[in-house]
C-alpha cells in the first residue's frame, strides 16, 4: 500500500452535512469556527488499544495522551467526549488502569463504549468496572436526551463469532426507546463496529445492523459514529449518515487494499497524521464533523 492511501476518501457532501478534510485527504488541523449559541459540540475518539506495543505504534499511551491534551486545549470545551471502543488491546486490569489514568484527565465528561478488544474472552466485567456508561441498561447500552438531540449508545461487540451483533434484547430495547422520540428529533448513535456492511470480508459489519437501521429510518436526521476500522470512512443511506473515526493508536488499511486488516506501520510523522480525534457540531440538528490529526 502506498503511504497515505488510506487517508484518501470522498468528502461527505450530503445535504445538511459539512465534512471538512485537509488537503490531500489528510485529517485537518483547522480551528473550529466559532459556534452559535444553539450548536452542540462533542468530541469523538476511538481505538486507543492501550497495551499494544508493536512497530505500528510503540507508544499508544503517548498518542492517547496527545489526543487528550489537544481536546483539553480546545478553545471551547465539548459537552462530552465519546470513546467508541477498543480502549485497551487485551482488556487486562493493567491496561484498563493505564487507559483510565489518561482518559480521566479529560476536562469534559467521558462516555466510553467497549470494543471487542475490551471484552476479550467474553468478559464484560473489566470494562464495566472501569468505564460503565452512566445510567446505562444492564446490557451496557444507553440513551439520553440533551440539547434537543436524542443520543443512543449501541453495543455490537458480543457474540463476535457472528461479527458485530446487537442481539434481540438490545433491538427490542431500541424499538421501545425510539418509539417515544418524534421523527423530527435529530438522533446521534454511537457504536464500535460499523452498523452497516462496510467491508464484511474483514468483519467490518454488524450482522443484525439492518434491523437497527430500519428502526432509525423514520427520523429526519440520523448520524451514526463508530470506530473499529481505524480510519475515516463516510457513508449515507437515506437520512442516515455514517462516519467511522480514526484511531488514537494506529491506522488500518483501506478496505481491500491489503491482504489483511492488521496494523499499518508508518514513519512517526505520518503516523501522527493518520491518527487523531473528531469534533462534532450539531447546528440545528445537522452534524458537522471535523477529523483532526495529532500532527502539529
Amino acid at each position: 500500500m502506498r503511504r497515505g492511501d488510506f487517508l484518501e476518501h470522498v468528502a461527505w457532501t450530503g445535504a445538511g452535512i459539512a465534512y471538512t478534510l485537509g488537503a490531500g485527504g489528510l485529517l485537518t488541523g483547522r480551528a473550529v469556527a466559532a459556534g452559535s449559541h444553539d450548536t452542540v459540540e462533542f468530541v469523538q475518539i476511538s481505538d486507543s488499544h492501550i497495551g499494544f506495543h508493536q512497530a505500528a505504534n510503540p507508544d499508544v499511551k503517548q498518542t492517547l495522551q496527545m489526543a487528550v491534551n489537544a481536546i483539553n486545549a480546545l478553545p471551547r470545551q465539548p459537552s462530552f467526549v465519546v470513546h467508541t471502543g477498543d480502549i485497551t488491546h487485551l482488556s487486562t486490569a493493567a491496561q484498563f488502569d493505564d487507559a483510565r489514568a489518561i482518559l480521566s484527565q479529560l476536562r469534559a465528561p467521558l462516555i466510553a463504549l467497549p470494543g471487542e478488544h475490551d471484552v476479550v474472552g467474553n468478559d464484560f466485567k473489566p470494562y464495566l468496572l472501569n468505564f460503565r456508561i452512566p445510567h446505562s441498561t444492564a446490557g451496557g447500552w444507553a440513551s439520553w436526551d440533551s440539547n434537543g438531540l436524542h443520543y443512543v449508545v449501541l453495543l455490537n461487540v458480543f457474540n463476535f463469532e457472528k461479527m458485530g451483533l446487537l442481539g434481540g434484547e438490545q433491538l427490542a430495547w431500541l424499538e421501545r426507546d425510539l418509539s417515544a422520540v418524534p421523527s423530527t428529533t435529530p438522533v446521534a448513535v454511537f457504536t464500535h463496529v460499523p452498523l452497516y456492511a462496510l467491508y464484511p470480508q474483514w468483519g467490518w459489519t454488524t450482522d443484525d445492523g439492518t434491523k437497527a437501521l430500519a428502526l432509525l429510518q423514520r427520523f429526519e436526521r440520523v448520524t451514526i459514529l463508530n470506530g473499529h476500522i481505524h480510519q475515516v470512512v463516510t457513508h449515507e443511506e437515506g437520512n442516515i449518515r455514517f462516519a467511522s473515526a480514526a484511531a488514537t493508536a494506529y491506522p488500518q488499511p483501506k478496505p481491500g487494499t491489503a491482504p489483511k486488516p492488521g496494523p499499518v506501520t508508518l514513519p512517526h510523522d505520518d503516523l501522527l497524521r493518520a491518527i487523531g480525534y473528531r469534533t462534532v457540531e450539531f447546528d440545528d440538528g445537522n452534524a458537522r464533523l471535523e477529523d483532526r490529526s495529532l500532527a502539529t
Binding site: 478488544h117 476479550v120 474472552g121 467474553n122 463476535f160 463469532e161 470480508q201 474483514w202 468483519g203
Partner: peptide
C-alpha cells in the same frame, strides 16, 4: 475454531 477479535 476462530479468532474472537477477527472472526474471519
Amino acid at each position: 475454531y476462530f479468532c474472537q477479535l477477527h472472526p474471519f
